[in-house]
Design a protein around this nucleic acid. Sequence first.
DNA 1: ATCTATTAGTTGTTGTACTAACTATTATTG
DNA 2: CAATAATAGTTAGTACAACAACTAATAGAT
Lengths: 143, 143
Amino acid sequence: MHEEPYGEYSFLLDRTARRVKQFAQQRFKVLKFPVTVDQWLIMKNIYERGAMKQNELAELVFKDNPTVTRIIDLLCDKKLVARNPHPNDRRSFQIELTREGKKKVDQLKPKIADIRLQAWEGLSEKDFQHFKKVLNTIYKNLE
Amino acid sequence: MHEEPYGEYSFLLDRTARRVKQFAQQRFKVLKFPVTVDQWLIMKNIYERGAMKQNELAELVFKDNPTVTRIIDLLCDKKLVARNPHPNDRRSFQIELTREGKKKVDQLKPKIADIRLQAWEGLSEKDFQHFKKVLNTIYKNLE
DNA sequence: ATCTATTAGTTGTTGTACTAACTATTATTG
DNA sequence: CAATAATAGTTAGTACAACAACTAATAGAT
């Protein structure tokens, strides 16, 4: 590890990202949330921005189209999300939350904020800002 | 996003980690490296630390046992790694690089260091240290 | 208006992650 | 020493990620 300082970040980044997702997923399970972490991300975005097309959703969450297709498949199976025909484009769907889906988001949102907060013990607002800056810079460097 | 500052980090972390891996994987493909990024991580660790058991390897790279099993399956198929019987424990294998595997690591190592470096344009050594500190703190907070 | 290019979404395949359940072997302890 | 517990690794099932190839529909160009 010592001769390759910049090889280390990719390892730590991957490891930490996996840990964060796994931690949240475990909490979801204990608290009997009916969705995965990635399914939650999709639902939250529909909730906040309203009904939209799958490709708009994909762009928002930085997942590719096939991945979004499959996540929405699962959410439709659970009746949390619905594919409605798009008024102006028969290729597209309007993806929206069902009543049940909206209810779940209302219930889960504050609890998930708590789960997320736990990672930041011992870190400051300044750390948070700097961390975001570095993540965004890396992302842009690789675009 | 505005009401949930600490929900944002998990999103950015996941997004960036995926981008970093995908970027490296694309380069691997262009340069005709015969392995994936995760397979590389396993090979590099065997190279640096010598032959070891699968569970030792798993602990080193922070992957779980089934994942390591499958990555090693693939590396064995490619004849880059070999499962040898463990002298003292018939449950275990000694995992080691084949001659071909060692050769590949020698060839690839410097090129991969270059690929990794590209993410850090415009960032300083200080950024790097701070970034590592935050990643490690998050990891520990969720252990 | 037709021909072509683009776009939205799906399907297939490979690889990784996580959990749970399982086999075989080794260690414990009663 | 025999019964039990713990450990190493595998297998099965579900989910996400990336890429490629595909269908159906729309947009653009002449």
